[in-house]
Structure formats: C-alpha cells, structure tokens
C-alpha cells in the first residue's frame, strides 16, 4: 500500500536528515520504524505527510507512493484525503481548543455529518476522551492528550495511520491501553499502521515487520522475532547484552561509536 523508495531528505538545502530510506507498509499491517534520536524517523513521516516545506525541508530523491500513486509534491490536505494521516511527535494538540473541537479539526477534510459520525467512533475507541469532550485540550493529562491526538487523526478515517513516538512520556498502563487500541484498530478495521518508536520492545511486540534506521539510513529490517534475535538490536534497542545484564549508557555509547550497522 505505502512504498517509500530510496528517499533522501534535506533541510535548508544542506542538512541531510534522511540519506537513503526504503520501507513499505501493506494493507492492515503494523510496521514499526526504530532508531535513536536524530536518526531521521520523524523526518520520514513528515515527508510522507507533505509537511516538510514549513521547515524548509525537501525530498531530493526517491519515491513515495500510496497504492502506486506518488505522494511527493501533493498538498497535506490532499494526502489526508487520500487516507494517510499522522499523529505528530509530542501530540501537538490545539491546546486552546476543547477536546471535541480538536477532534472535529481532525475531520475537517470530511463532510460535517461524516465528521460527526467519526466522532462517535472515536468515543467508542477511547471512552475517556468522551468524558473530557468539553475540556480545554491543554489541561488534559499526557495520556489523555495522546488519546485525543490519535482520535483526532482517526477522524479522517485513515487507511494508514502514522504514529510518531506515541509512548513518549507516558505511564506503562496508559501505553498498554493505547497500544491495545491501535492493535484492535488494525485488526478490526484493517487500518495500516506505521509506528515510530524509541521503545523497541514495545513496538516489536505489536508490529509484524520492523525497520531500523540510523543516521538517515535504513540499516536493517525484518520480522520482529528475527530482529529480536539479533545481538546488535538486543544491545542497542532492547538494552541488554548477551549475558543478560543491562550495560550502562557509557559502555553502550562507546560501543556504538566503534560499531556501525551493516545491512
């Protein structure tokens, strides 16, 4: 369904944020994109959503297609209409607006009646959001905000939902709730999910395929069990070494400097 091929993205014409990224997501599949800070994960998602230009970013090579049609150069609202929507990193709610207004803005590309219908669906998925519907979004807890952010994206009835670090700063039990909802959504409604995470263990637990990106390059990919068996993945992303002991950060960093990923 979504195909990203050898994509290269620069900011300000010089900063190479993504050097060579290829990945694909099939209908109804949950795919995760793992990588450390600054690897280029968010940049890839922004490239798919068509929102690089406000940050002076540009796709200078490669292709991005949805069911064979190119997404590059299309306006963000057209991309949403074609069924691809993103939940940005850090939730990015419209803080001064109420929860319901936030959600309705997620449905802006649809008719008013379509949006009202979608609102009920979101309330079914996240009952807690319904309770808070008239609260100012900026006053919600982090977990509630993440639910609103996901709900807002779902308002457009996407075929592909892209989540940028949804677990960031949330308590384990809220994370579990959110991940369960995402997983249900993909199973029941056949929505594809592209999940960007730092929490590799969590992401690998619900994904059916994973990519690892480093310094703007996809350096490894495969099904979760294959990656989880890989020593390097264990080391960097799952946080334990062969002996089963967690290494301290300094060791890992030192090791990382020496070792480069090979695909």
């Amino acid at each position: 369904m979504l195909n990203v091929n050898n994509v290269q993205i620069v900011y300000d014409n010089v900063i190479e944020a993504v050097r060579d990224a290829s990945l694909s997501v099939d209908e109804g599949q949950i795919v995760t994109l793992l990588g450390s800070n600054g690897a280029g994960k968010s940049t890839i998602l922004k490239g798919i959503s068509g929102v690089l230009y406000p940050e002076d970013g540009d796709i200078i090579g490669g292709t991005i297609t949805l069911n064979g049609e190119s997404l590059i150069g299309r306006k963000p609202d057209e991309i949403v209409r074609s069924g691809v929507v993103m939940v940005p990193e850090g939730r990015q709610l419209f803080e001064p607006l109420t929860v319901e207004e936030n959600l309705m803005m997620g449905g802006i590309t649809r008719s008013r009646s379509g949006a009202t219908e979608a609102l009920e669906n979101v309330f079914d998925i996240f009952p807690r959001v319904k309770e808070k519907r008239s609260t100012i979004a900026g006053y919600l807890s982090g977990g509630e905000q993440q639910m609103v952010a996901i709900g807002r994206a779902l308002m457009s009835s996407p075929r592909l939902l892209m989540l940028d670090e949804p677990s960031l700063g949330l308590a384990p039990q809220i994370i579990a709730e959110i991940f369960a909802a995402v997983s249900d959504l993909s199973k029941q409604n056949n929505v594809s999910v592209l999940l960007v995470e730092q929490n590799a263990e969590l992401a690998l637990s619900i994904a059916s395929y994973a990519y690892i990106i480093e310094n703007g390059r996809v350096v490894m990919d495969g099904p979760p069990d294959k990656l989880m068996d890989n020593e390097d993945v264990k080391e960097f992303y799952l946080g334990f070494s062969e002996s089963g002991h967690r290494r301290n950060m300094r060791d890992v960093k030192h090791y990382k400097r020496r070792k480069r990923w090979l695909s």
């Binding site: 609202d77 991309i79 209409r81 001064p96």
Partner: peptide
C-alpha cells in the same frame, strides 16, 4: 483558532 494555535498541526490535519 486551530491554525493560530499550531500551524503545522493544522496542515497535518488537512
């Protein structure tokens, strides 16, 4: 109001 609050997110939502 949404655009005033967060322009990039407004774009993202279409």
């Amino acid at each position: 109001r949404a655009t005033a609050a967060r322009e990039t997110t407004a774009l993202l939502m279409g």
